[in-house]
Simulated assay, not measured.
Amino acid sequence: MFAAAPAPEVSATQAAILTAYAELIEEVGTDDVSFRLIALRAGVGERTVFRYYPTRTELLLATAAWIDRTIFTRAESESIFDVPIAIREAMEAYDRRPELAYVVAEAELRGVNGSDPAPHREEFDGMLRREVPSLGDEERRGVVAALCHLDSSATWVTMRRELGMSGRDIADAATWAAEAILDPIRGVVGGA
């Protein structure tokens, strides 16, 4: 599994606001949450919320990035061949907190939440370079891109909404797909 990207520095007040909004999203969704309600839950004044997040969109995007870095965190994988397990665990985490997964996916799909759309790209690339040095650049980029695509809340949301899959089926499908991507290179580990 992977370490979370370093979170941008947030003050205690910002953390309280983001935590409050994340809690309220799970309780009532994103549409029914006013800045006043967030402020009450966070224990701050409504003006304080507006000072940090002047628009609903800014608040939502900041919250999505915060959720991704604090709630959907992962430890570092030791091997590229452990990535399917990390992907399974990510899909299971999204399934346990679906409202938050939808928020993170929405922000990822907009590409404007300040987070990296493929936060584990460098780790995947580095592990492949170390473990399968004979892999060509084009093939390595393809493997990395495919794993990054699978390793996202957007994939979970697509399988849930568009395909109507259950949480267990999503975890199984994502794990199987990651294994299928890695299987062809298992035989060339460390090879020349």
Rank of each mutant, 00 (worst) to 15 (best):
M1W: 09
F2T: 03
S11Y: 12
S11F: 11
A16P: 02
A22N: 02
E23Y: 00
E26N: 10
E27R: 10
G29E: 07
D31S: 11
D31W: 11
R41T: 03
A42T: 01
V49I: 07
V49R: 03
R51H: 11
Y53S: 04
L59P: 00
L59K: 00
L60S: 15
A64D: 07
A65D: 14
A65I: 00
W66G: 02
I67G: 05
D68G: 04
R69W: 00
R69A: 15
T73G: 03
E76C: 00
F81G: 10
F81N: 10
D82W: 05
I85V: 15
I87V: 15
E89W: 02
A90N: 11
A90W: 03
M91L: 09
M91I: 01
E92I: 05
Y94Q: 07
R96W: 01
Y102V: 02
E106P: 01
A107M: 08
E108N: 12
V112D: 15
S115M: 14
P117N: 10
P119K: 05
E123D: 13
F124G: 06
M127K: 15
M127T: 00
P133G: 13
S134Q: 15
L135Y: 12
G136W: 03
G136N: 06
E139I: 00
E139D: 15
E139A: 12
R140S: 10
V143N: 08
V144C: 12
V144Q: 08
L150R: 01
L150W: 02
S152T: 07
S153P: 02
T155E: 14
T155P: 00
T155V: 09
V157N: 03
T158V: 10
M159S: 05
R161P: 00
R161M: 08
R161A: 08
L163Y: 15
I170Q: 12
A171F: 05
E179H: 14
L182W: 06
P184S: 11
I185F: 11
R186Q: 12
G190M: 09
G191F: 02
A192N: 12
